[in-house]
Write a protein that binds this DNA or RNA. Structure first.
Lengths: 151, 151
DNA sequence: CTTCCTGCAAAGAGTTTGCATTTGT
DNA sequence: ACAAATGCAAACTCTTTGCAGGAAG
């Protein structure tokens, strides 16, 4: 859950018989240096990497973020848009999402109890906690005032 | 958030200039009579309806569940599988999910505090609460013991 | 009788996969 | 050297959409 160095990532990969590739290092680096609260889709990450001169294929990106999510390095977020977002998984920046089901506007918020509940629940079931997210679906003030089309 | 009759559904639809169609009634009925804790994907719903002799098209199903989720009648669940699931949105049966990121095994659990947090948070932002879900990503006991392939 | 809804088929988006090649270890 | 990862392109799945006919209010 804390910061990964090249070495600690390597060690954790090796434990499972996997390899440290330049692509994996670069992708981890991106996420570690991302501003708090920022999250990226696979496509976002692809473009960002390209803009920095790294030509990593989309397939590798999909494979890598999924791998890192399964390792607990990244959080996989299901926001209102129809694709997944990823961000580094650090308790310090742990936050949750309040999403308007109509306009998809999303607010991030923090709450100390949530992590505790996640911790308690997973322990009770013998699970090893990676991440827990509270997602609130609601109607934002501005959408409460308007009659919406079916879409 | 409570039980809908044909009339109350009709009224709520009319408020927004929408219509009560047989398809919408039938679909709501399915969800209201679903065993507690059961949830359906669009495809599941399609098959279930067909098995009961109702030939409702997949497009209508997708449109209807989305509509009902936006109305707050259904909860939209993002479980481990790569498609959405829906269930009726009732506080009495309000529960959350603990998901193994490796094998996707899912456990449902209840927690009284979560709804309170959702309530408080949405109120504070002026949002009208529809649903809140705590999703815990973790590694289940059996997967903790096995070395997994990259997939 | 107007507007919304349905069903169909086609399109779309995001993600995954097979395979040959390359690269860690 | 051997197994694992990458890149490419094609495939796949879930979901959305345009449109014509049909139904609710």
């Amino acid at each position: 859950m804390s910061f990964y160095t090249e070495d600690s990532l390597k060690a954790e990969l090796h434990e499972r018989g996997w390899r440290l590739t330049p692509q994996r290092e670069i992708i981890l680096d991106i996420f570690q240096n991302l501003a708090a609260g920022k999250h990226l889709s696979a496509e976002d990450l692809y473009e960002l990497l390209k803009s920095e001169g790294h030509d990593i294929s989309l397939s590798t990106i999909y494979r890598t973020v999924k791998l890192m999510a399964r390792m607990g390095i990244l959080r996989e977020l299901e926001l209102a848009e129809d694709h997944k977002h990823y961000e580094i998984n650090q308790p310090y920046h742990h936050h949750h999402h309040l999403i308007c089901v109509r306009c998809n506007q999303t607010i991030e918020f923090k709450n100390e109890s949530v992590l505790k509940i996640g911790d308690k629940t997973s322990k009770k079931e013998g699970y090893h906690l990676l991440d827990c997210q509270l997602t609130i679906h609601a109607v934002c003030p501005s959408c409460q005032r308007s009659i919406l089309p079916v879409s």
